[in-house]
Amino acid sequence: MIFILPLVAVLIGYLIAKFLKPSSSTSFKLLLSFSGAYLLSVTVFDLLPEVYEEGGKDIGVFILLGLLFQIILEFISKGLEHGHMHHDPNSKKFPILLLLSLGIHSFLEGFPLNESSHLLYGVAIHKIPVAAILSIFLFNSKLGKTKAILFLLLFALMTPLGSLLKLQFDFIEKYAAYINATVIGIFLHISTTILFEASKNHKFNASKLTVIILGILLAYLI
């Protein structure tokens, strides 16, 4: 499941982009808000207590390092991880830096997925709107269909690759708490940015507030 679900999430995102054209859709923005709330809640409810129990007070340093690292990645990706796409669609160059940024982010988020099914669902839900936005950009760009599909395939494979390496190499388990803490920092930055940006002029409308509360409750109850 940890290998299949992230791939399915990217496929769903691609299909949404292809058939529903969601770039300005209210329901799409609600899905993004829900994904941010669910991912944040799973991180706080599941991952955070576990890493502090395993790693002690130094864990906080790695959480902050993860948060800072995600900020650096977003200088390259232009914020696609939380629902934005600011790259030039007229460029014919393969966006290597964008792939590198998204690839590192996706690779790292694959490491803790075998420890929590709730987190697996959270990452999968988060990937759907990201994959949809990425698909819209790629297929509206001048890259060509083959390069666009190759990009999406590489992006889809990075999270399962991170999960696979975690399971295959025992020495990684020795540092698992610190790796997970770094991923927590990444998740905290992404999810809170989504929630803050979900409010226009710092005001939530009723529908967005409802899906955010629903995402928190669902993460707590499941």
Rank of each mutant, 00 (worst) to 15 (best):
A148V: 14
G122S: 03
K166A: 13
I71A: 09
I16L: 01
G185S: 00
T193F: 05
L217H: 06
P112F: 04
F204M: 13
M1N: 06
L217N: 12
L102G: 02
S207H: 14
E197K: 13
K93V: 10
L100V: 15
F45W: 01
S117E: 12
I133F: 01
K78Q: 04
L221Q: 08
H86I: 05
L188Q: 00
N140M: 10
K92L: 06
S106P: 01
M158L: 15
L11P: 01
G162E: 02
L80P: 08
G144W: 04
L138A: 08
L167D: 14
L32G: 11
K208M: 10
Y52M: 01
F69A: 02
K78P: 02
I172P: 05
L64Q: 08
L65M: 15
T192E: 05
I133Y: 07
L47A: 10
G103W: 05
S27A: 13
V211K: 04
F196R: 15
K92F: 03
A206D: 03
P112S: 01
H189S: 11
P160F: 05
V10Y: 09
F171M: 03
A17H: 10
L108P: 07
Y52T: 02
K92P: 13
I2Y: 07
A9K: 06
Q168T: 12
L119H: 08
E53A: 13
T182Y: 06
V8Q: 09
F75C: 11
Q168I: 12
L47H: 03
L154T: 14
N114Q: 15
G103A: 07
V123L: 07
Q168F: 09
F151D: 02
S207F: 10
T43C: 06
L15S: 01
D58P: 13
T146F: 09
L150N: 09
E81P: 00
K203I: 15
N114A: 11
H126R: 04
V130D: 15
K29E: 13
L7K: 04
P129K: 05
P160M: 02
S163W: 00
L102M: 09
S35G: 02
L32M: 13
V211D: 10
P129T: 02
K166D: 13
G110Y: 00
N180I: 09
I190E: 11
S141R: 04
A124F: 09
S106N: 14
S163G: 11
L164F: 14
T159F: 01
S141D: 08
F28H: 06
E53S: 08
K142T: 15
P129Q: 05
S199D: 08
I2D: 12
L68M: 10
L167W: 01
F45K: 14
L157S: 12
L195G: 08
F196S: 15
E54C: 00
G144E: 10
E81G: 08
S135K: 07
G56I: 00
